[in-house]
Write a protein that binds this DNA or RNA. Structure first.
Length: 665
DNA sequence: ATAGGGTTAG
């Protein structure tokens, strides 16, 4: 054997070895062979290609790219493999960069394998403009009949939020297959068109088209969202008929669908019938408990999950943490924070966001900031969370400051950012800042968004400029005036003592065919009580009680007690409290006590105070008010006794809680 | 070698 043929046979041997290493993801062996190839001078372009592929499969992207770059003329296959590797590992921008390099430098023509990787990356990065350019290349390149290319193009548009474009691709497709149909279902659902998604599925069934596992996995979340239990059951029948019930994904989707449709029995039946359960199965069931408000059961399931050897992921923790926030359950929230740390999940964006949100909702925004400080700040979601956390704790100035920092960091605010931020300007009530923000919104074109428009009206009202608020209100077309906008405008006038205008706006709203809800009634009753429109308020309250779609809440009773109490009709106020269908809250008794202070009524004052001392024994304000009544009527001794209690509470109360180190949990 | 599916935070 001469030298030449020895090299060739060695090269062949190495190539087949690398094929094996790539399949078994043997990184160490790949590295060893790489070194051997260098030292023996056998590193040919062909071997580089095999080595690159092996590194790629082992997940060592750096070396894969290095060897790729060392190839004098990478083949189309090598390009495609590199693109695939980047796309599979979530390096979408690198995918697109390499694609541009490959096409623009004229190195290779893209083929039917290239485009799906590219469209995947475009869809994930939501670069729809770029996607359109690649779309054009697909057409000029004559790929419009390739089902893989066209399906990936369809999904790309759906992932970019362009459902109309996606639909167009589907409608003009040469031969839509089951993947195309499934993509339409999931695409519509992702874009908030659940009805259309269900329509696509029904059409598939009616036309007797081919369906598969992915079809049912796509349509089941739609059934759950729409609470279409009957359709969900039909899908379950289909699953049994086709024998897809062994698939974990199908079973998980069934558990979730039945749970969301409120059929715990069927959800449990599927769950219990599963021999193997993964983290998604458990998370789905945990979510069911959370939905039912049973945190203890949810935590018990966590324990069972761990005992079965299934580890939680960031979704599991995010669900549990957000439940703690909703129920102001700081204790469990902190334990879960510790669990997240031990599971090395605390630096996942989703967990960070839920932690920020949970602490803020538990009124511990100091801890939210501690978590936020350690986030990467490259994602808008944690920013939005800390902004809404500030708002929840009425830290308007801090929110505005954070927003400015966010802009400086180069973050792009989205609609959710502004929704979180805008109440800050209403809290600050600083006209200058509000005007600046308004012009920012006008420039960004976001004012046309209904929710944002409502927020602007609210800001101007809170800043005291009812004229500006009303001008914007009038500028919104009548058919776009929804209940939120009306409520804000009514509350604006009510808050500044213009009860008559508030009531007349309320009547206008009803005439315009917008049904008042609990919030509108609170606003208008509040307006009446501020302006002393006692009978007007009583009439509205009676109207509300007669309207059976609206259930009177504690807020409404507080308003009406305040209204009657301020005008001196204390006995009537107490009569109303006695008719309440649920236990009066501290706010209701507080309104009565406040009125008793104004009108120096000892008897009812003592009654209200008795309840208040029981409901919120630590609130010194109640004792002070009662002392005030005693002093006013000359019962100095009683007043003195109560002031004494206030001092005792003050001494007993711990000093302001110190910042607790979360990291030590 | 290439396309579609399950839990989820602001």
């Amino acid at each position: 054997m001469n030298g030449q043929s020895l090299v060739l046979s060695k090269g062949k041997q190495y190539k087949s070895l690398l094929k094996h290493y790539a399949a078994t993801k043997a990184l160490t062996k790949t590295t060893q062979l790489h070194a051997l190839a260098i030292t023996s001078g056998l590193l040919s372009p062909h071997l580089r290609s095999s080595l690159s592929l092996s590194y790629a499969n082992c997940g060592h992207l750096k070396n894969a790219r290095k060897l790729f770059d060392e190839m004098p003329q990478p083949t189309l296959f090598s390009y495609n493999m590199m693109l695939k590797t980047y796309a599979q590992h979530g390096f979408y921008l690198q995918t697109l960069n390499l694609f541009v390099e490959m096409v623009n430098l004229g190195k290779c023509r893209a083929d039917n394998y290239t485009y799906p990787f590219v469209f995947k990356a475009v869809g994930e990065e939501k670069l729809v403009i770029f996607g359109g350019v690649v779309h054009a290349r697909v057409l000029t390149g004559g790929f419009e009949k390739d089902s893989f290319v066209m399906n990936s193009l369809l999904t790309m548009y759906m992932n970019c939020g362009e459902k109309e474009e996606g639909r167009k691709i589907f409608d003009t497709m040469w031969e839509p297959n089951v993947v195309s149909w499934n993509s339409m279902i999931s695409g519509y659902f992702k874009n908030g068109c659940s009805k259309e998604a269900l329509g696509v599925f029904n059409k598939m069934m009616d036309d007797g088209l081919e369906t598969d596992c992915a079809t049912v996995v796509s349509v089941l979340p739609v059934c759950g969202f729409l609470k279409e239990l009957e359709v969900g059951r039909r899908v379950y029948e289909l699953v049994k008929e086709k024998g897809w019930g062994k698939e974990m994904m199908v079973r998980n989707a069934l558990v979730d669908m039945f749970a969301k449709c409120g059929s715990m029995k069927e959800a449990r039946f599927i769950f219990d019938g599963m021999v193997e359960r993964d983290v998604v199965t458990w998370t789905s069931l945990i979510n069911v408990c959370i939905l039912n408000g049973d945190m203890r059961a949810a935590l018990r399931l966590c324990l069972l999950m761990v005992l079965e050897g299934v580890r939680p992921n960031s979704v599991t923790l995010a669900s549990l943490l957000s439940a703690c926030g909703e129920s102001k359950n700081l204790m469990d929230g902190r334990c879960l924070h510790g669990w997240a740390t031990r599971q090395r999940l605390e630096y996942s964006v989703m967990v960070e966001t839920s932690l920020i949100d949970m602490y803020a909702k538990c009124n511990r925004v100091d801890l939210s900031f501690l978590v936020f400080k350690n986030t990467s700040k490259k994602n808008t979601v944690p920013w939005n969370a800390i902004l809404s956390g500030c708002i929840h704790n009425r830290l308007g100035k801090e929110a505005v400051k954070l927003f400015k920092e966010m802009l400086i960091e180069g973050m792009k605010p989205n609609a959710a950012t502004l929704k979180s931020l805008l109440p800050a300007y209403a809290i600050c009530a600083d006209m200058q800042q509000a005007t600046n923000m308004h012009s920012y919104l006008l420039r960004s074109g976001l004012v046309s968004n209904n929710e944002i428009g409502t927020a602007v009206v609210d800001i101007y009202s809170k800043c005291g400029s009812l004229e500006s608020a009303h001008k914007i209100f009038n500028g919104i077309p009548n058919e776009n005036k929804d209940i939120y906008l009306w409520s804000v405008m009514i509350a604006g006038y009510g808050g500044h003592g213009h009860g008559e205008i508030a009531v007349s706006l309320f009547k206008q709203m009803v005439r315009a065919g917008v049904k008042p809800n609990e919030v509108t009634f609170t606003s208008v009753l509040h307006a009446c009580s501020h302006a002393g429109l006692v009978d007007e308020g009583l009439d509205l309250f009676k109207l509300m009680l007669r309207n059976h779609q609206i259930s009177p809440q504690a807020d409404h009773y507080t308003c009406i007690v305040d209204l009657l109490g301020r005008s001196g009709r204390l006995d009537e106020a107490y009569d109303i409290i006695k008719t309440m269908p649920f236990a009066p809250t501290h706010a209701v008794w507080g309104a009565l006590l406040g009125a008793c202070v104004i009108h120096e009524n000892v008897e009812l004052g003592e009654l209200a105070a008795k309840w208040l001392f029981e409901l919120e024994p630590e609130n010194t304000g109640n004792y002070v008010l009662m002392a005030k009544i005693y002093s006013a009527v000359g019962r100095w001794k009683d007043a003195e006794n109560i002031r004494h209690i206030v001092n005792e509470i003050g001494l007993r109360k711990a000093p302001a809680h110190s910042l607790i180190e979360v990291r030590n949990m």
